[in-house]
Amino acid sequence: MENAKNLEEFQAKIDAEIKIEPKDWMPEEYRQHLIRQMSQHAHSEVIGMQPEGNWITRSPSLRARKILMAKVQDEGGHGLYLYCATETLGVSREQLIKWLHEGKAKYASVFNYPSPTWADMGAIGWLVDGAAIVNQVSLQRTSYGPYSRAMVRICKEESFHQRQGYEVMASLMEGTSEQKKMAQEAFERWWWPSLMMFGPHDGDSPRSSNAMKWKIKRETNDDLRQQFIDKTIPQAELIGLKIPDANYKLLENGSYETSDIDWEEFWNVIKGNGPCNTQRIKHHAAAHDNGQWVREAAIAYNEKKEQKLKSA
């Protein structure tokens, strides 16, 4: 009975656009949904450091080096805010990382693709961060307070990343024929994976309904995807990139029609069969395991210090 009343109050708050805060009552399913989604988001930021981290040492100019290194650092910072926000739901970061290594938690599938050239640094910033922004702008209005606030902070930096990525692509498109080719190929590599970032068609998405009712999610996958397509195609055309879709066309309402996504590829990579799934988790787990003695040393040192203080 208590539960029904709580639930009613909870829904009333949601309907009135009042944020849910950590200490507020919330349905267990809401909490679980948020833990899953927010930790997945946190892991995505952190795993996303790898494909771009891959090129930091090979950055071709001092400026490019600073920008890329700072960008990858920002992503780590986003991961940190999001882990902290997720911890407000009563799970520790250690546990979240354990679930990641055990394959129980996911991260954005898009980071399971490799970054073979410098142009991938442009394409990832422009397209992957660009797609993330569309999603995250919408999540600024999500009903859980700590998540919403984390999104507001993160969105500002993501739009920098998107512009910097686009700038890399634009300058490559003004460069030598080899640079142009590099840019076009990277665009082709990342176009479809970035469209896949919005997830399956809404009808095929298992968890959409309550997420909408509880305003965790504010817009449908397909709507968000369309916003991204409509924003990105003109940007591509402006710098002379060819859209890797024979059927795309501009409609009278200013929106673009595109071919359907290769959903077999989408589900295959999610299942773990993408080019880099194993590599990404291995890298993360190795860093974590190699750091074990360091974390232990820091704890032991602090304990010794406290002991000394006590006995002093």
């Binding site: 952190v46 940190l80 974390r295």
Partner: peptide, 11 residues
């Protein structure tokens, strides 16, 4: 980058 013992240290 991305190899540190924990995230704060990486940053």
């Amino acid at each position: 980058v991305s190899h540190a013992p924990f995230l704060e240290e990486d940053l």
